[in-house]
Nucleic acid binder design. Sequence first.
DNA 1: ACGCTATAGTAAACCGGTTTTGTAAACCGG
DNA 2: CCGGTTTACAAAACCGGTTTACTATAGCGT
Lengths: 346, 346
Amino acid sequence: MRQKRTTIIDLAKACNVSKTTISFAFNNPERIGKETYDLIMQKAKELDYIPNPAGRNFSLKRKQTIGFLLPQQFEGTFSNPYITQVIQGIGDICTEKDYTLTLIPPFNDNMNDAVYKVSVDGLITMGINVEMDIVESLKRMFIPFVTIDGHPGEDTPSINIDNKAASYDLMKEVLENGHRNIAIVALKESEYEKSMRFESTTQIRLSGFEKALNEYGISLSDPNINIYDEECFIEAGMNVAKQIVKTNKDATCIVCMSDVIAIGCITYLKQNSYKIPQDFSVVGFDNIKTSTIVTPNLTTIMQASIEKGEIAAKTLFDLIDKNEIATIHKILPHRLIKRDSLKKIN
Amino acid sequence: MRQKRTTIIDLAKACNVSKTTISFAFNNPERIGKETYDLIMQKAKELDYIPNPAGRNFSLKRKQTIGFLLPQQFEGTFSNPYITQVIQGIGDICTEKDYTLTLIPPFNDNMNDAVYKVSVDGLITMGINVEMDIVESLKRMFIPFVTIDGHPGEDTPSINIDNKAASYDLMKEVLENGHRNIAIVALKESEYEKSMRFESTTQIRLSGFEKALNEYGISLSDPNINIYDEECFIEAGMNVAKQIVKTNKDATCIVCMSDVIAIGCITYLKQNSYKIPQDFSVVGFDNIKTSTIVTPNLTTIMQASIEKGEIAAKTLFDLIDKNEIATIHKILPHRLIKRDSLKKIN
DNA sequence: ACGCTATAGTAAACCGGTTTTGTAAACCGG
DNA sequence: CCGGTTTACAAAACCGGTTTACTATAGCGT
């Protein structure tokens, strides 16, 4: 049977003082006499007393914790370096501020309810938009939150890149390199996401692709442009590559909305003796570290993932500390990174 | 100014009942009359009342949260897929049990103090051993914990692989392939770790290497065996490879205690026009996903990282639920995975 | 009509702290 | 020596819930 740790009352009794005095000893030492203070500290050491943070935080009406609402189950989240880097950025700021970071699972479709069962001072979310129930719910519960890669509405902070411009840049590069038969691998959306009238990141990026294609007189619905939907796993990327070589052999370039998928593609293609970029060019999105490790190195769009997390966390702490509503809509820079996985043809 | 959310008292007043009744309505509906119940639920909806989890958990003397004590700063943790997979495993079990997972930064050298400022029902730690102060501290505070990759003492659960056997297997494979001039890249230990009399994972693995070497009549201190210490980053791996080609050109194989380092080595070597495994063989440890993505694929020791996290979490929940001390010392299987980064020579 | 048992609700204690308010004794200047 | 100010501590309220113990009323069988 586990023992109970010493409480403030235990210590107060041991010292023959009130619990007020104990509390002052730990938080306002100047308010009590030196001898009493010394006695309390000595007895505290003897009895292993450390103020219970749960009681303390409850009393202070804070949690000293912010939450990160996972955009998907743990597997998808933790196998995607882009997301783990975002978490790293958040975590670094939390460490600085002496807060802890709680990971909150996505709770499938009824996110709304379950979020309330966890207690945090604020929340960082990814990929949600203003139409989702959770936005309204969080506001109703007065839970401050900031959103990365999403559009939670005018009055709620968000951190994004210019996804349309970024995907335009990527597709333009592909087109400039002469590719005209292109497989696009989009990020699969849930039925829930699809039901939104609001444009998802996938749709925005598609529109960026479209803009570039249009400049070359090509429509998104052109028979030479094929769009696939895939989850964001290595294996999913391998899978879509398999499909592409089976059904769409004339494609010269595979444009992926995520490096993870792109790397999955490359891995599958190389395993099946295709040469990259000779047989297929492949480009990605995010510039995760692995994109410099695969052979060939991946042409991709860099976005500052750690910084995204850091800024999101800082913004959230502003919200929490100032106790007021900030409406920052930050657009971080992106950059096309040209490497070796995109071949110039014709 | 942020509003306050509705409390149980607010709702009680609105319904003209006591807060006991409200509490029963949410937790023991059968104890109150149907009409009262309906009224409460209706008013609760009107006023957006949801029981405050902080108050609830405090009252129930639980936190509904377990902590993961990061083995190093966020950067090192989140750039190492082995660790993120462990976290994934822990997270999956937390999700099942409706707990959340809190990431606790390592607090540098005075881990002991800071751990108490976070409130969790239990803790999962990595790489600590029985001599570290934190073990004693956690016990004194009656915080249940289980340790992954460490030896926290007889009476505290641990999850490990047989590191000596695993490293023996790895080195034996290297030797069987004819390598005799070997660079070993060990995981760098802090001064604090070095001060322990207890063997660290690094030292245990070194002893496994030694055993294999001895079978070939080679001592660890042989001039052809060179040991390097490195942090566990890609860049650190690149760095050590640079050192090795500069000062130890005769080495034919680089044996790394982590895939991350091995991949860093390969990346550097390839960037500098060395051929792997023709110029250098490289082997790693952990079997992270990227080890199948680099070219050549990495020969390594597989250990079930996700499963480690899962088992650790399950064990911890047993401790928490049963409220008693379990002393499970689990040794999970490992496996040598032969791939293409190790060349047979002579 | 009586006593017994359910039923439906309330009051109060409790979880472990913080903080406001109160108060006795010491101190102080004139 | 008196009135006012400090000093050093304590009492009590509070944070938002749960739970134990208690009470009033209704329903029941006999």
